[in-house]
Design a protein around this nucleic acid. Sequence first.
RNA 1: GCCUUCGUAGCUCAGCGGCAGAGCAUUCCCUUGGUAAGGGAAAGGUCACGAGUUCAAUUCUCGUCGAAGGCUCCA
Length: 610
Amino acid sequence: MAAVSSQPKQQERYEDSYLYKLRHSAAHLMAQAVQELYLGAKLSIGPPIENGFYYDIEFPEPLKEDDLEKIEKRMKELAKLDQRIQCIPIASKGEARKLILDQEIPGMGEAVAEYKLQLLDAIKDGDQITFYDQQRTDREGKLHRFFDLCRGPHVDSTKEVKNFKLMSLAGAYWRGDVKNKQLTRIYGTAFETKEDLELHLHNLDEAKKRDHRILGRELGLFMFSPRVGTGLALWLPKGATLRHVMQDFLQKEQVRRGYEPVITPQIASIKLYEKSGHIITFKDKLFPFMHDEDGDKDTYILKPMNCPFHIEIYQSQMRSYRDLPVRYAEFGTVHRYEQSGEVTGILRARGFTQDDAHLFVTPDQLQEEFIGVVELTKLVLDKLGLSDYRVRVGTKDPNSDKYIGHDDNWEAATNAIIAACEKMGMEYVISPGDAAFYGPKLDLIIKDALGREWQMGTVQVDYNLPERFELEYTGEDGKPHRPIMIHRAPFGSMERMIGLLTEQYAGAFPFWLAPVQITVLPIADRHNDAAQEMANKLREVIYDTRNLRVSVDDRRETLGKKIRDNQMHKVPYMLILGDKDIEAGTVGIRSREKGDLGAMSYEDFLVSLE
RNA sequence: GCCUUCGUAGCUCAGCGGCAGAGCAUUCCCUUGGUAAGGGAAAGGUCACGAGUUCAAUUCUCGUCGAAGGCUCCA
């Protein structure tokens, strides 16, 4: 199912499209309205975004959502004036500075130019400086202009900015840095036609119905309770079943590929994480420490990740090059104290289960093993029906000091990932700053119902933890060598993957995944026994390594009612059993997608499932 | 954590300074049926929690907790 998106269908890049210009102009028109309405408002930036635009502004008084209406109204008035818009080049920074300070619109000037001047300063000498230049001549022939430092491009007149809507308010840090002041961000959306705008708003409403939190409750997959705590999901029978099915599938694939299962504890001494380096990077993101009864003898923390445990297991014995690669897999439940504002249903929870594994390999094996893992990850997504993903190679941010290990290691690991991508002919985007603190990684990114991107499967190459833990194996030469680690999780986490899948399928999971695959519907009470019998018979059938999951709806309701309810619960097949069927030895089949398929023998139905 | 918005029955929501409402779900009764809601009745609430203003607060104000959207972060 496609995410909400209203980008042009043509091959044309969004940045070159009319829609992009339109939204850009809408943003600046909003800036003009704000300047008129709120004396002292400081403008910063207002770019178009995927489905609209925003503008970050510092307001003298906190802005409330009711204000949006007022701003929208003024924008409409300004738009109607048919003001000519141009993107004009400015020859020098000095001239640009003058333009910013000499705004004719009241309120603009030194006191409110703070962010604009900073933006101007950031422009490299020699680079082209351009301004949004909007002008009109009033009845008396007087010229009114509104300038705004801007890269462009724009539409030709404000009257083209007709079909727009201001959506919401948010805080956003200046230049994306928490240390800076938080500005007020106004989000809006704009379209060429009224119909497009309405369609977009309609699509947003539809997307909200696919929200995994709503479907999760409606379908009985999982729930949250304030008494349990933020970000801590309770898995209901159907959701737990879904998890088991997914785990079975992955486990089977892992056994085929030589993975071995391990199980590790939920808490560990803090020493383990001091050794790994996680404590320094993530000390604020851990649940409170646990202390020994007799004081400071030892401190324990709730497991935030599995790697160090697997490393301990690797290290527990002498390893020969003949033993490698070693592949340890675990569905490891971890807890991380995410900031309250970051928690999003099961897509970002405080407790979650990773389909984790760590491979310990020799340098010679690295590429082959890495490719093997990426291929497994792609196979997993393919099986789940998620074809719409992008590949991101997260590398070190050269300006940050949060990383451990030597540059040589980083270079080797990054090169290994890129070489493997090239060898596989895979499209990828390099994203500096998106590496883990111990190494670069390859992530598969998928969008949710609202078009937000989420990191799903991940594969990471790590030279640094083996070094910190002094991991070794004995080589052919009889000398100790250092293995390389591959961290990987094809689903990412069970929670996030199930959340995404729920949204992708709008709850109508494919047959092999559906928590309830078949419901048997007896028409009247006298058919209940036959229905139970049929359900029991079906439950003996092995499908895709598991017994069929069958329920019986023997409530005293009409058939129509039962069908409706089961359809709402997205059950793939309903088997209807009444007098006619019992007499003829058939069963009425109803498919979730195709509706009534008519009567069929039990055997024919089974064959149709294959 | 920060900005904005929201919290009324299990769910979806209406209401509002003066006795707490509807639909669905639940329970019971009637109905025993053939492909998307059969009929009736009952039960269900400290209007998230705590303070304040008021003769009177579910309604207004403040605080706490929880949730949603965004920012930051994401081993």
